[in-house]
């Protein structure tokens, strides 16, 4: 918007007004205003979103205070609302998803950036990005009808007989379980880890690789000990972004996790997540306290994802500054 000062100082006040009127007449100021309104409405919507979540959850905040997060009982009938089982389920299913998705995603990203010929790498990345576009409910559909039966009949009995001494693999087998939720989430977040990590790895200067190879390192040693550490902060950012998605993911998890607000060490036991309980109980919430408790859960979920996203953004800003300083 910086326009060159063309007017002489003593005629400036009328000049500026004249300039403004001229531009108003030509439509520039009108266009500026219209686009400004659109941009401002984005801020308005976001502020309204936070405001609505906050004001519509006053009842449970006043009634339970901080103990809302520590309570283990979720009993709408007696009006007792504790969010711990849902927070537990959300954290465990997301952690499980990361446990599977991070090695898989980083491995695939290494292959795509370091080994694969550009053509294959591009086609593969395209397919992986399509994977990211598959709607959540379709993952849920496949989860219910394909993954859960496979887990129930094959994987879980096998884990129980071989690793059954661990507390994670004990208890009755239903199929729908924390394990199923974590696996579906893993599949859903892998594309995000791959596409961001691949970009970060490809941005590592080629001299780094050449130097390592010239020292006699094998391809793998150069990749693992030089290229990956160079890109580690960016890879971490990709993991944070994926985590934020996993926390807020609703449909696929709701369909396979079993929806039972219990805290159990076993991954075979059904669980419940924040997003899932909102999806399941919102329409049948009777009474203001029940509804507002669910909205407060929504607020918790919102703040959690904002926090993780913010961390990811900070990490990205930190890396780009570091990169600028080095390069």
């Amino acid at each position: 918007m910086a326009s060159a000062p063309t007017t002489v100082d003593h005629v400036r006040p009328p000049g500026r007004t004249w300039e403004f009127i001229k531009r108003l007449r030509r439509g520039d100021e009108v266009a500026h205003l219209i686009t400004l309104l659109a941009a401002a409405s984005i801020i308005v919507v976001t502020v309204m979103l936070v405001y609505q979540l906050y004001t519509n959850s006053t009842l449970p905040r006043h009634k339970f205070g901080f103990s809302f997060f520590l309570g283990k009982t979720w009993d709408p009938v007696s009006g007792e609302f504790g969010a711990l089982p849902f927070i537990f389920g959300t954290v465990v299913s997301s952690a499980l998803a990361l446990l599977v998705a991070v090695p898989l995603g980083v491995g695939a990203a290494i292959f795509l950036s370091e080994l694969a010929p550009p053509r294959i790498s591009n086609v593969t990345t395209f397919v992986i990005e399509l994977l990211a576009a598959v709607p959540s409910v379709i993952y849920g559909l496949l989860g219910i009808f394909i993954l859960v039966p496979v887990l129930r009949k094959g994987v879980m009995p096998f884990l129980k007989t071989t690793l059954g001494f661990l507390p994670f693999f004990q208890g009755p087998i239903y199929g729908v379980s924390m394990l199923a939720g974590g696996l579906v989430l893993a599949v859903m977040i892998v594309p995000f880890i791959i596409s961001v990590s691949r970009e970060v790895l490809m941005a590592v200067p080629v001299e780094q690789r050449e130097a390592a190879l010239a020292m006699g390192a094998t391809k793998w040693e150069s990749t693992w000990q030089v290229v990956v550490p160079f890109a580690r902060v960016g890879i971490m950012a990709s993991v944070f972004l994926a985590l934020a998605r996993a926390l807020g993911e609703t449909m696929a998890v709701t369909m396979v996790i079993g929806n039972d607000p219990r805290i159990s060490a076993s991954l075979f036991a059904p669980g419940y997540t924040i997003a899932a309980v909102i999806a399941n109980e919102f329409t049948e919430a009777t009474g203001d306290l029940y509804l507002e408790a669910l909205i407060e859960l929504g607020l918790v979920l919102f703040l959690l994802t904002i926090l993780i996203n913010g961390l990811a953004r900070l990490v990205i800003i930190a890396t780009t500054q570091k990169g600028a300083a080095q390069g």
Partner: peptide
């Protein structure tokens, strides 16, 4: 504006449902 847009992009879809519900 850019920051808010990124923030809005990260909002879980179920929370967006609550928002539309309340207003």
């Amino acid at each position: 504006v850019r920051y808010t847009t990124d923030l809005l992009n990260g909002v879980p879809s179920i929370v967006m449902g609550i928002f539309a519900y309340t207003i």
